[in-house]
Design a protein around this nucleic acid. Sequence first.
DNA 1: TACGGAGCTCGAGTGCACTCCAAGCAAGGG
DNA 2: CCCTTGCTTGGAGTGCACTCGAGCTCCGTA
Lengths: 145, 145
Amino acid sequence: MQDVDAGGCGTPVPGAHPRPDGRDRYTISEVVSLSGLSAHTLRWYERIGLLGEVERSHTGQRRFTNRDLDWLSLVGKLRLTGMPVAEMVRYAELVREGDHTVGERLEFLVAAREDVRGRIAELQGALEVLECKVSAHAAAVAESH
Amino acid sequence: MQDVDAGGCGTPVPGAHPRPDGRDRYTISEVVSLSGLSAHTLRWYERIGLLGEVERSHTGQRRFTNRDLDWLSLVGKLRLTGMPVAEMVRYAELVREGDHTVGERLEFLVAAREDVRGRIAELQGALEVLECKVSAHAAAVAESH
DNA sequence: TACGGAGCTCGAGTGCACTCCAAGCAAGGG
DNA sequence: CCCTTGCTTGGAGTGCACTCGAGCTCCGTA
């Protein structure tokens, strides 16, 4: 089965470090450079349940998988939208609960999408104001030769 | 002289309480319902210099002016963009310093504008991912008849 | 065998933006 | 005169999302 939450929608971001393919086990420091998050933050994400049990090496060190990386990329997107971490944790729990939560997850995603649309509209309002202020100040600067 | 920072760019927001015109002195509770900010927050804004000395009644109560309301509306826009309060305070200081800071203010506004544009782009990236996830989950829900 | 470097856990600390509290004053109504 | 309502102050508290520190283990190289 193809989990509907893993991969499939990630933009292979131009700015970010590319993921070396053919591998599926990454140390925490590799994930730090791949994700841009700090090691502390990654461990914290796991503690609060935003990341689900990460696999371990025989000595107890974390070994992140490509699936973890996909999940982190989604989390990054949601974080950009300003979604509180607690909500993302709730979503992570739904994913862990299995396929029968897919309807609830759909609701969550739709709500998040509407939220983002609203936020974009807000920002566009702010942008208009800023553009107006910029013109006014540029004119004032020009006027004072 | 027409201060380039007062009014002129405010969208008369459809959702917000309209400002009763013909008046220029508002109590703190009037500003609470006009701005949506709490009284605590308004006093705190004044304390940290985000609002400049607010006029007082003979008994020491604050009397906000239309100019204060205009400023608060700009602050609200900037807050929506995620700008830290400290930066807005810096801008407020530039405004208080007078006309000779108009160039610096222009720089500030241009930077803020670029910031907002970048943030909109980020959100649009997140929106795409969300739309993709929504389709995938909608399909999964439909498939499970 | 010694050492540097990466990783581990648990718990405490930080910075931001509020948010609340206690104690007190002023005006108006009963 | 008392009570309520609305406002004042300074300072303490809250919630969020990290962020850091102490003290430990484990591994590879000299």
